[in-house]
């Protein structure tokens, strides 16, 4: 078997004195969709932030593309960083730039494409998230859901190999949520993009999940194929899928 694109080994971390993650293991192969789920405050965002190297672990290793990013200098990490897109929980658009400028930003900073191509790409990406009309608007002029979609357009501006999303559908209506899931599936199937998505939405999980990692109080109770999770008989997971099922 080939080396997984993301491999988290025995990851532990703490804020102050309190351990937030305790020996988490997880691996994602290229082209898979991994869902991270668990109760709020169980450390999902924290795990994600470690994988994208915003936080440094207390112990354990994280391999991206086969390289251990916990033992890397900043300049060594940069090329890897360009292969990843991140959708933050709150969008994190730059408020002083228009939506189109936000999406164009990574293209302008990290590629040497001619301008007209950049703006065409921006137009296409905004069309994918159905924000054609928001081209000249500023982030504060959009609703929360629109901001999130704009942030998604920015996250996929560079066609990253791995896309990380922190609660992409939180606070969105079911229709938009469905559209975003379809977008995820298209990106996954047509471009072979690997996705790591934190979400609670049961519908969403059923639609897109190939693998799941279930976090509970900083421990990964389960990490593996979605079907196996349903058969695993772990009480918390059963409860999650039964309770939230109608």
């Amino acid at each position: 078997m080939t080396e997984p694109i993301i491999r988290v080994t025995n990851l532990s971390t703490k804020y102050g004195d309190r351990f937030v993650l305790r020996g988490v293991n997880m691996s994602v192969n290229s082209g898979e969709i991994m869902i991270i789920l668990g109760g709020s405050g169980c450390g999902k965002s924290t795990l994600l932030k470690h994988i994208i190297r915003l936080l440094h672990p207390y112990s354990g290793q994280i391999h991206l593309f086969g390289q251990d990013i916990t033992r890397m200098e900043e300049h060594e990490f940069e090329p890897i960083q360009r292969q990843m897109g991140v959708l933050f929980q709150n969008g994190a658009l730059i408020n002083s730039l228009t939506i189109s400028e936000n999406v164009a930003l990574p293209l302008q900073m990290h590629t040497r494409l001619p301008d007209d191509l950049i703006w065409e790409i921006v137009r296409v990406k905004l069309h994918l998230v159905e924000l054609d009309h928001a081209y000249h608007l500023f982030p504060p002029e959009l609703s929360g859901g629109m901001r999130k979609r704009a942030a998604l357009a920015r996250a996929i501006a560079l066609d990253p190999q791995i896309l990380f999303c922190d609660e992409p559908s939180a606070g969105l209506d079911p229709v938009t949520c469905l559209e975003i899931d379809q977008l995820f599936l298209k990106l996954n199937r047509q471009l072979g993009m690997t996705l790591v998505v934190v979400t609670h939405e049961l519908e969403s999980i059923k639609r897109i999940a190939q693998k799941i990692t279930y976090l509970d109080q900083g421990k990964a109770l389960f990490s593996g194929a979605f079907e196996d999770a349903l058969k695993s008989g772990i009480p918390q997971i059963d409860q999650f899928f039964l309770k939230s099922a109608p």
């Binding site: 189109s100 065409e120 137009r123 296409v124 905004l126 069309h127 994918l128 054609d132 000249h136 471009l191």
Partner: peptide, 18 residues
Amino acid sequence: QEVLEYFAVEAAAPVPPA
């Protein structure tokens, strides 16, 4: 061909200049 259709430029509405 599919990828091409998916990222169709024509489908995206032209941007009126501000």
